[in-house]
C-alpha cells in the first residue's frame, strides 16, 4: 500500500513525532507517569496553553502577530476569578466586552494599516493595567462548575488529553473546514485576491481577532479552573509560548499557513519539555532553556525533512 505524503502531512508529522519521542523519554525516565493520573498531571497545564496557542494562531493566520496574549489571558483569568463565582453575569459581560475590544483592535490595525506588533504591544499594557485594577493582589477563586470541569475524571483517557483533542478538533473545523476559516487563511495568503473575490478583508480580520479573543478568554478561564486563583501576572509567558507553539506545530508567520492540530500538539510538546527536564533531575534553572532547546531541535528536524522533500 502506498500512501502519498504531502508537504502538509510532513508539517503535521514532525510535531507529532517530536511529541511521541518526548513522551517515550518521559515514560522511560519515570514509568509511573504512564498512568491515568500521571498523564493528567503531565498535560494538565497544557490545556490553557493550547487554547492560547489557537488564539495566537488565528492572528498569525492573517499575517499579524499578537504580543498581548499573555496579558490578555491574565486579564481574563482575573475577571473569571473575581466575578464569575459571585456575579457570573457581570463576569460574562466584561469578558464579552473584552472580546469586542479585541475585534475593535483588529479593525484599527486593518483600517489604519498599523503594525500589529506595536498595537498589541500597547494593548498588553492596557490589559495588564486592567488586570491589576480588578485584582491588585493574587487571589480570587474559581467558580465551582469551572473547577469541577477542569478536574473532571473522564473514563480511561485523562481529561487533559480529551480536552486537548476537543480543542484541536474544534479549531480544525473552524479554521480548516468552515467558510470563515478559509477566508481567514485566504487573507493571510493573498489579501488582495480575497478582496477582489468580493469579500470584505476588514470583516474577515475583525472576525479572526474576535475569535482569537474568544479562545484567549477560554484559556484564562481554563487556567483559573486549574489553579483556583489568579493574579495579574499569571499568564505573561503565554505570549511567547503561544508563538512558539504555533511555529512548532508547523505554522508559518506569513502566508496563512497554519495548522490547528499542529498548534495544539506544539503546545503539548512545549509543556512536556518542561516535565521531561524535571524528570531528568536537571535543576529547574534549565526548564526554560529546555523549552528553547526543544524548539531548536524540532525546527532543525523540520529543515532536514523539508530538504529531503525538495
Amino acid at each position: 500500500m502506498k500512501i502519498k505524503i504531502s508537504a502538509d502531512h510532513i508539517r503535521l508529522l514532525i510535531p507529532l513525532v517530536s511529541l511521541a519521542v518526548l513522551l517515550v523519554a518521559v515514560f522511560w525516565l519515570q514509568p509511573r507517569a504512564m498512568s491515568y493520573l500521571g498523564l493528567n498531571l503531565l498535560f494538565n497545564l497544557a490545556v490553557p496553553i493550547a487554547l492560547a496557542t489557537i488564539a495566537q494562531m488565528l492572528v498569525i493566520a492573517v499575517n499579524d502577530l499578537d504580543l498581548s496574549i499573555g496579558t490578555f489571558v491574565s486579564f481574563a483569568a482575573c475577571v473569571t476569578a473575581v466575578y464569575m463565582p459571585s456575579t457570573p453575569l457581570l463576569g460574562i459581560f466584561i469578558l464579552a466586552v473584552a472580546i469586542a475590544a479585541y475585534a475593535f483592535m483588529g479593525m484599527i490595525i486593518h483600517l489604519r494599516d498599523l503594525p500589529s506588533i506595536v498595537v498589541t504591544l500597547g494593548m498588553s499594557f492596557v490589559w495588564g493595567g486592567l488586570a491589576v485594577l480588578i485584582l491588585p493582589s493574587p487571589g480570587g477563586q474559581a467558580p465551582v462548575w469551572l473547577r469541577s470541569m477542569m478536574t473532571a475524571q473522564t473514563p480511561i483517557i485523562p481529561f487533559a488529553i480529551v480536552a486537548s483533542l476537543v480543542i484541536g478538533i474544534v479549531a480544525h473545523l473552524i479554521v480548516m473546514k468552515s467558510t470563515l476559516g478559509v477566508a481567514i487563511r485566504g487573507v493571510g495568503g493573498n489579501a488582495r485576491s480575497v478582496s477582489r473575490a468580493g469579500w470584505s478583508v476588514l470583516r474577515i480580520k475583525v472576525a479572526a481577532y474576535a475569535l482569537s479573543g474568544f479562545f484567549s478568554v477560554l484559556a484564562g478561564m481554563a487556567l483559573v479552573g486549574l489553579t483556583t486563583s489568579a493574579d495579574a501576572n499569571i499568564a505573561l509567558r503565554y505570549t511567547l509560548l503561544s508563538i512558539a507553539g504555533v511555529i512548532l506545530g508547523g505554522g508559518e508567520f506569513v502566508g496563512g499557513r497554519v495548522s490547528p492540530i499542529g498548534a495544539v500538539v506544539g503546545a503539548l510538546t512545549l509543556t512536556l519539555a518542561g516535565s521531561f527536564l524535571s524528570f531528568l533531575r536537571i535543576s529547574p534553572d534549565w526548564q526554560i532553556g529546555a523549552q528553547g532547546a526543544v524548539l531548536i531541535v524540532v525546527l532543525g528536524l523540520r529543515l532536514i525533512f523539508s530538504r529531503r522533500e525538495a
Binding site: 534549565w286 526554560i288 523549552q291 528553547g292 532547546a293 524548539l295 525546527l299
Partner: peptide, 16 residues
C-alpha cells in the same frame, strides 16, 4: 528558523 523564533529560543537558553 524565522528570526522571531530563533531569537526567542535563544533567549530561553540564555535566560536559563
Amino acid at each position: 528558523i524565522p528570526p522571531i523564533i530563533a531569537t526567542l529560543s535563544m533567549s530561553f537558553l540564555v535566560q536559563s
